[in-house]
Simulated assay, not measured.
Amino acid sequence: MHSATRPPLFFPGVRRVALLLLGLALACMSASLWAHGVNENDKAFIEGASGINIIPYMYLGAKHMVTGYDHLLFLAGVIFFLYRMKDVGAYVTLFAIGHSTTLLLGVLLDIRANPFLIDAIIGLSVVYKAIDNLDGFKTWFGVSPNPKAAVLIFGFFHGFGLATKLQELTLAKDGMIYNLISFNVGVELGQFMALTIILLLMNLWRLSPSFNRSAILANAALMTAGFVLIGYQLAGYFTQGA
């Protein structure tokens, strides 16, 4: 991205300490990492409901997005160095197009994939964004992926991840299209609410004179979180879903 000057990739000692501390903190979150999905109450409603249920499905979509740590981590990484609302809008729109497409098509056309592998790729999207924010691709490989194309492509995987959660349930055929569209609208509303909070906090943080130095630590944390997500999903794949 070209909307802001990024800090140097790392400074001495910070990466090692940050990754150690953050890795320990994230390990303590292991139980919640497994919990991401549809809870029992929501599952009971979805499997027991019939007909068109616009408001409940909008609520479920919004709830899934605002509690979806993997989606929020990726979004936080995407907007990390975006200062203009025009740029934020462009990237978030690409992400929305991506995940809306695969969410709807995945369920309606019954396109299936192993949810552990899809969620591992979603974890990879978080790692990618952190490395991109630190200019790691240019530093290490001399090239940088197209950031807008990457956000769109990873958006497809995020939407497919949502689809795999719904595919695990028995959805009533009656009103399915309307309910799925309502769920997707709810996801977008949840994304807007979460993004508003993230942007407000980010703008306050940017006023700090130590933002550049803190930004390195934050993206190191983001990268660590992504690797933890990948590790847990791959562990789940080999122990439960292979």
Score class of each variant (00 low, 15 high):
Lys129Ala: 11
Lys129Cys: 01
Ala130Val: 07
Ala130Arg: 08
Ile131Trp: 02
Asn133Asp: 14
Asn133Cys: 13
Asp135Gln: 14
Trp140His: 12
Phe141Leu: 15
Phe141Glu: 10
Gly142Gln: 09
Pro145Ile: 05
Asn146Gly: 05
Pro147Tyr: 04
Pro147Arg: 14
Pro147Glu: 11
Ala149Val: 15
Ala150Glu: 03
Ala150Val: 13
Ala150Met: 13
Ala150Lys: 01
Val151Glu: 04
Ile153Met: 07
Phe154Asn: 06
Gly155Cys: 02
Gly155Pro: 01
Gly155Phe: 00
Phe156Pro: 03
Phe156Ala: 02
Phe157Cys: 05
Phe157Met: 12
Gly159Ser: 10
Leu162Gln: 04
Lys165Thr: 13
Lys165Ile: 11
Lys165Leu: 14
Leu166Glu: 08
Leu166Ser: 08
Leu166Asp: 06
Gln167Arg: 10
Leu169Gly: 04
Leu169Arg: 07
Thr170Gln: 11
Thr170His: 11
Thr170Cys: 00
Leu171Arg: 09
Ala172Gly: 01
Lys173Pro: 02
Asp174Tyr: 00
Asp174Cys: 00
Gly175Asp: 06
Ile177Val: 15
Asn179Ser: 06
Ile181Asp: 03
Ile181Ser: 02
Ser182Phe: 01
Asn184Arg: 05
Asn184Glu: 09
Asn184Thr: 15
Val185Glu: 03
Val185Asp: 02
Gly186Thr: 07
Gly186His: 07
Gly186Ala: 08
Val187Arg: 01
Glu188Pro: 00
Gly190Gln: 12
Gly190Val: 11
Gln191Asn: 07
Gln191Thr: 10
Gln191Lys: 09
Phe192Thr: 15
Phe192Asn: 09
Met193Tyr: 02
Leu195Tyr: 03
Thr196Met: 14
Thr196Gln: 12
Thr196Val: 14
Ile197His: 03
Ile197Cys: 12
Ile198Arg: 03
Ile198Pro: 05
Ile198Glu: 09
Ile198Val: 14
Leu199Gly: 07
Leu200Cys: 15
Leu200Asn: 13
Leu200Lys: 15
Met202Val: 12
Met202Ala: 15
Leu204Phe: 09
Trp205Ile: 14
Trp205His: 13
Trp205Cys: 13
Trp205Glu: 13
Arg206Asp: 13
Arg206Cys: 12
Leu207Ser: 09
Leu207Lys: 14
Ser208Pro: 00
Pro209Leu: 05
Asn212Ser: 12
Asn212His: 11
Asn212Glu: 15
Arg213Cys: 00
Arg213Gln: 13
Ser214Asp: 02
Ala215Met: 01
Ala215Ser: 15
Ile216Asn: 06
Ile216Ser: 04
Leu217Thr: 08
Ala218Val: 13
Asn219Ala: 09
Ala221Ser: 14
Ala221Gln: 05
Ala221Lys: 08
Leu222Pro: 00
Met223His: 03
Ala225Phe: 02
Gly226Met: 10
Gly226Thr: 11
Phe227Met: 14
Val228Tyr: 10
Ile230Lys: 05
Gly231Glu: 09
Gly231Ala: 14
Gly231Leu: 09
Gly231Asn: 10
Tyr232Phe: 12
Tyr232Glu: 15
Tyr232Met: 14
Gln233Lys: 11
Gln233Cys: 06
Leu234Pro: 07
Leu234Glu: 06
Ala235Ser: 11
Gly236Gln: 04
